[in-house]
């Protein structure tokens, strides 16, 4: 039984006053400018100095905390190696290659959990092109997995899938998925200090130049 009969009467929505409309209009306008600038500033293609400055000084401070300062540029794929699936592989330094390494995402991981591990692996590889972030994530991944491999000296590899061309699959079949090394490093902790020694691909190493003998 209703306690107060008058409360069950259909109520009518109060229209927004002119002041409220004006305030909301200003807020919406500001937000839409921020949304447009966020999309422009967070584009993978880069952005102009003007957009970066206005966005960074006026909009990032209040759009970043609620996770709204985004480019929403869901490209899905550009068919590049960076777009392929990545995985992390770690083993204790010096362990024979016959011993199975720890692979993440592990075989039993499914759905979004596995996707988050793949994003982590991919982010570590992509960040290598960013001087401000280079080596940060591989070192953190290594340090975070010391306990899992049972030692503070490990070999870290990030592998990415090599995807065949369509014509190749159409003629010879897909075969088993193949992975290539996208990043490799030794991560260790010595006297409390975390060290990362990156394994450079051989072709990127400078040749040894010897002074001619007199």
């Amino acid at each position: 039984m209703p306690k107060n009969p008058s409360s069950t009467e259909p109520s009518v929505a109060a229209p927004a006053s002119e002041t409220v409309r004006a305030a909301v209009t200003v807020m919406l306008g500001l937000y839409f400018v921020g949304l447009a600038l966020s999309i422009m500033a967070n584009s993978a293609s880069g952005s102009s100095a003007l957009v970066r400055t206005i966005h960074g000084r006026l909009f990032s401070p209040w759009m970043t905390p609620p996770w709204l300062d985004l480019g929403y540029d869901t490209k899905l794929t550009y068919g590049l190696p960076d777009d392929a699936d990545h995985r992390i592989e770690v083993r204790r330094q010096g362990t024979p290659s016959t011993v199975r390494p720890l692979v993440l995402p592990a075989a039993g991981m499914r759905a979004e959990r596995a996707r988050r591990w793949r994003r982590l692996a991919r982010a570590a590889v992509i960040a290598e092109q960013d001087p401000d972030r280079e080596a940060l994530l591989p070192a953190a991944i290594g340090a975070g997995l010391f306990d899992d491999v049972g030692g503070e000296d490990l070999s870290l590899r990030i592998l990415r899938e090599v995807r065949p061309e369509r014509a190749e699959v159409a003629t010879v079949g897909a075969g088993q998925p193949r992975f290539e090394q996208a990043y490799a490093a030794r991560v260790r902790r010595v006297d409390g200090e975390l060290q990362l020694i990156k394994n450079e691909p051989k072709e990127e190493l400078a040749p040894v130049v010897r002074e001619p003998m007199p």
Binding site: K75, L76, T77, Y78, R87, R163, P177
Partner: peptide, 28 residues
């Protein structure tokens, strides 16, 4: 719209092969 614009910056969305590269991610 932002997703479409991002995609159309890539050659694979013009040469018709993007779906192939999406389908060939064997893990995900």
């Amino acid at each position: 719209a932002a997703a479409a614009v991002a995609q159309l910056k890539g050659d694979v969305w013009w040469n018709g092969m993007a779906a192939w590269w999406l389908a060939m991610r064997s893990d995900s």
